[in-house]
Write a protein that binds this DNA or RNA. Structure first.
Lengths: 141, 141
DNA sequence: AAAACTGTAACTGATATAATTACAGTCAAA
DNA sequence: TTTGACTGTAATTATATCAGTTACAGTTTT
């Protein structure tokens, strides 16, 4: 898992924490603890899914594109197109004579696809709004 | 996810495919398509959990330590101690003034722990014996 | 026109990954 | 009892990925 997902979730929660405001990549980056250019890259992906709205030029920045209680971590995961749980390396080789060696790659692919569906279901049950609530419960004002 | 998991699963399925035989790291590596030293390293972890039995010396090698229908991918995942879905990089900083910045790291940790529990449940339902059956169904003799 | 932004690509250093090499220890068989 | 075939483990290397950083063109407000 690539941490772009973490940057995206954190940024959206922070935007939800300050509703109505337009925040610059610099301000978001300070809260996430990363570089503004990285925030802009991640926000660019979120923007394509309509999860945030960007405004260029002086006084510009980002604000939410949707009600935070309707945005799930599954939406964000998809937007990051990071996807696959499966490691880049694969075992076996479809051209082998052995039944196991020849089929293992495809069977493992199925296994990982199933795992991703499980994860997607789990992430689908967690919203940006829900995370913000959890955070506020942890540190009552 | 580290591909040691893939090497481990493949190796166990291959051992299950040739029951009763003791296979060398070289023979297993040829089927998995990796280096014998890597197989030995992975098998070393499996051995500590009793999933395989190793025999040193001439004519030595590995064989299963348990009935393949009773070994789940969750057992193997634990043996690989690869664990965490969470990326190594973390956002936020507990010392920040902002509620969001200060708590995000811990909240995301909880999210990823939940995700790992989901995955573990899924992997717990898949056995080495089951995978071998799937493979044989794909390529009927 | 100047200043403050986003959008995007290129570069850099750090870390992770998998292959490879090396060799000490162990066992079986001649 | 020597030889050869193995495991166990650590060190090394090459490659890929990751995150930070720099740079700059394009856009918008003032």
């Amino acid at each position: 898992m690539n941490s772009d997902f973490v940057v995206a979730v954190h940024s959206l929660v922070y935007l939800a924490h300050r509703p109505g405001e337009t925040l610059s990549s610099e301000e978001i980056a300070a809260n996430v603890c990363t570089h503004p250019a990285r925030v802009r890259k991640v926000m660019s992906l979120l923007r394509r899914q309509g999860l945030v709205v960007a405004r260029e030029g002086a006084g510009g920045g980002f604000r939410l594109g949707r009600d935070p209680s309707g945005v799930t971590l599954a939406d964000i995961s998809r937007a990051m197109q990071a996807g696959s749980l499966a490691p880049s390396w694969c075992s076996g080789d479809p051209d082998m004579d052995c039944v196991v060696g020849a089929n293992m790659r495809e069977v493992m692919r199925e296994v990982f696809c199933g795992a991703e569906r499980q994860l997607e279901a789990y992430f689908g049950g967690i919203t940006i709004g829900g995370l913000l609530e959890r955070i506020r419960e942890r540190s009552p004002v």
